[in-house]
Nucleic acid binder design. Structure first.
Length: 354
DNA sequence: GCGATCAGGT
DNA sequence: CACACCTGATCGC
């Protein structure tokens, strides 16, 4: 879980992914992606009040993050204060102190982070040097060399500091199977099950968070069926996702939720309450996306683990592995690295040493 | 009645 | 394992 307090040493007048406490005084806000642990204070009454009296304070994010954020009415008061930025398009942003009129100019670039829909990293270039705030990210080995705006001419930019998603920055999580490998394995398991009969149904036991959409679109394409989800509201302006999800319960692939979902599934009912129309019990398997990792010298490659008669865990990660992070850092060669996540049982000094 | 925090859950 | 939530209880205002 991110323990980043919201501010970078070089640019303390901007706040990123934290909106409480000291961040209430920021001149500009940045949201890397729409997960609650990066939105602390974002619906707070103090911030709401500050916006009422301010003409200059804005929240910068991607178009997709803006759409996901505003689909939740609790954040509707931000509407006129959000500036959605294009990806990979350097933008001049002037931070203004409303009391003194003091100005500070920055060039901010959104780089795709591969963590969930709309997720970005913020590249900030200004008088105090070039810094990269990664938010949460999953980039594969070699991806950083393909991000043009991390380069100047043929070489990588001089980066003073990286504020790093260090969730899996521990040799224990050396390798996590690639997105493609995991998708392929899940597709295989789904294929094997739903082809048996129309009563054979798959329940994708996904957490209540954005980040599984590419799984839905991939399975939707492969099996020419839509995935049942609770709500479509947040995707109404995202045709690629919208076309693969449905609120119609008559489908063999579900990703719906219910507080007593596990009991339901054990009793041949889906979390949405659906059972077969003619009274025949559904034959349900549950697939729970989970991060499965391997050590440096581990030869195992199982990306699907059977955990019961009709339950499986399938490898799925929102975050880069240790080796992926190492590749990222050794390519960028920043002067400073500030980890944003300290795993329990470790200290800040442990992670900094690594 | 509200938000913040914690316990306990998936 | 750790993640990103959720619900419900309790506390303080």
């Amino acid at each position: 879980m991110s323990s980043f307090a919201g501010r970078m040493k070089e640019y303390p007048n901007m706040s990123l992914d934290r909106f409480d406490r000291e961040n209430l005084h920021a001149r500009a806000y940045f949201l890397s992606h729409c997960h609650k642990d990066h939105m602390k204070g974002l619906k707070g009454p103090l911030l709401k009040r500050k916006l009422k009296f301010s003409l200059t304070v804005k929240l910068y994010c991607s178009f997709v993050t803006k759409e996901l954020l505003l689909s939740n009415p609790k954040y509707a008061f931000w509407e006129d204060h959000i500036v959605a930025l294009e990806l990979e398009s350097p933008t001049l942003i002037t931070l203004i102190d409303e009391a003194s009129g003091e100005r500070e100019e920055l060039v901010v670039t959104l780089l795709p982070a591969g963590h969930c829909p709309g997720s970005v990293m913020f590249l900030v270039e200004g008088a105090q040097g070039t810094v990269l705030y990664t938010g949460d990210f999953r980039l594969a080995k070699g991806d950083s060399s393909r991000i043009e705006l991390l380069h100047s001419g043929s070489r990588v930019k001089d980066i003073k500091s990286v504020y790093l998603d260090s969730t899996f920055y521990d040799p224990r999580f050396y390798q996590i199977p690639s997105r493609e490998t995991c998708l392929h394995a899940i597709r295989g398991l789904v294929q094997d099950w739903i082809s048996r009969s129309v009563y054979h149904t798959v329940w994708l036991n996904c957490k209540a968070a954005y980040g599984y959409e590419y799984l839905f679109t991939n399975l939707g394409n492969e099996f020419h069926t839509q995935i049942h989800v609770k709500s479509l509201d947040m995707f109404k302006k995202m045709p690629e996702i919208l076309s693969h999800v449905t609120t119609d319960r008559a489908t063999q692939i579900h990703a719906c939720r219910h507080p007593k979902e596990e009991e339901f599934v054990r009793g041949s009912r889906l979390p949405c309450g659906s059972s077969a129309s003619d009274g025949t019990p559904l034959k349900i398997i549950s697939i729970k996306p989970s991060t499965i990792w391997f050590g440096e010298r581990t030869q195992r490659t199982e990306v699907i683990v059977r955990t019961g008669a009709s339950s499986y865990r399938a490898c799925f990660s929102f975050h880069s592995s240790y080796s992926e992070i190492k590749d990222f850092l050794s390519y960028l060669q920043p002067i400073n690295i500030y980890p944003s996540v300290i795993p329990i049982g470790r200290t800040h000094a442990d992670v900094t040493e690594l």
